[in-house]
Design a protein around this nucleic acid. Structure first.
Lengths: 188, 188
DNA sequence: ATTGGCATGTAACCAGTTACATGATTCC
DNA sequence: GGAATCATGTAACTGGTTACATGCCAAT
């Protein structure tokens, strides 16, 4: 019921295959939802059975066939209903933060490495967001952009993902410096 | 396996009952993990069966008895092992962002309200984080604090939660102004 | 009188992860 | 020759949510 809406929202951008979505939903572009390919194929099947999406098979040469899914009117309606429902607060669940919370009784070096990995990951993702933003703006200012385009949703979610990664970077840099000081103190 | 570590990490602060944890894990203090009371009672039971925590029953007058759980040596060891394991990237899943993504085909007014609700929630949570921070620092600077205290984990996770809510506020304010302009344009 | 807080739990269900399975093509 | 990409799916399992259930005490 939750993934369902994320898929419908993504299909607003146009038809896509399970494989397309699994790329869009993976770590690289997912600014708002993440899912495994297995989940997507299953959910797309269910959505098709409910008539919220339709599939058409596209035969390709030198490539496996693919099924492209697109929204039906019923699918658009379901999405509209979803947006009108009150949202429940979203659970924050971050393994890295659990490790950081436990660092004082844990393996300081391993936690340091985990934070450094997150920093690297956040930098890469921020770069991707910045490219996506540049592509959307295409030289215009934000205000010009909003005046000219039909859809504002994708830009707003991109900006949230972008600021999330920016904050990850700031926090991780600060955390690393504090963890390093602590390691030095322990070494005495 | 995931909630398990969050519970063990929380018990580093000292013994706690299922009810205590369910308050600590609720929307107000959960800077890194969230869980329902039902999940917690079940998981605590399992942890006790595995010998990672021990329970002692405290009888209270004018109140139901409570079971206070604390870490065992095996529990500390399990937590340490967890911190040494490589962390997997955390899934982002935010219903509000799905709604915002779909806003152009959805109910603009309802989405606006959802963003406003999030803004209000984020402000309340930021205030709580700020109080928690002031309590921890107790008048000291951050550097003084880190030099004096044994545990740095709780402060670092608090700071991450705090900056997350700050960004929620910034983003929601900007999003609201853009959604309002869009509503005005549609009204023409 | 009724709402809210304290305090614990069970059971049924739904969502998400991991492992397995296949097979052609393209790039290094 | 081997790894990565395209493309789809099944099955078993684990984790998480929702509904139900109980009962006393304090405050309004």
């Amino acid at each position: 019921m939750a993934l369902r809406n994320a898929i419908l929202a993504t299909l607003l951008e146009g038809e896509a295959s399970g494989y397309d979505l699994s790329k869009g939903f993976d770590a690289s572009v997912a600014n708002f939802w993440m899912a495994t390919p297995q989940q997507l194929y299953k959910e797309l099947e269910a959505l098709a059975a409910q008539g919220l999406v339709t599939a058409r098979v596209v035969e390709q040469d030198r490539r496996p066939n693919k099924r492209l899914f697109s929204l039906t009117d019923a699918g658009r309606e379901a999405l509209r209903e979803f947006t009108a429902q009150p949202a429940k607060i979203t659970a924050i669940r971050d393994e890295l933060l659990v490790k950081v919370q436990a660092v004082d009784a844990g393996d300081l070096d391993a936690v340091r490495r985990a934070v450094a990995d997150r920093l690297e990951y956040a930098r890469a993702k921020l770069a991707r967001y910045d490219r996506g933003r540049a592509r959307m703006l295409a030289g215009r200012t934000e205000d010009e952009y909003f005046d000219q385009v039909e859809r504002i949703g994708p830009y707003l979610t991109l900006m949230r993902g972008r600021s999330f990664e920016k904050e990850n970077i700031r926090w991780a840099e600060r955390a690393l410096s504090i963890l390093d000081k602590r390691a030095a103190r322990r070494a005495l």
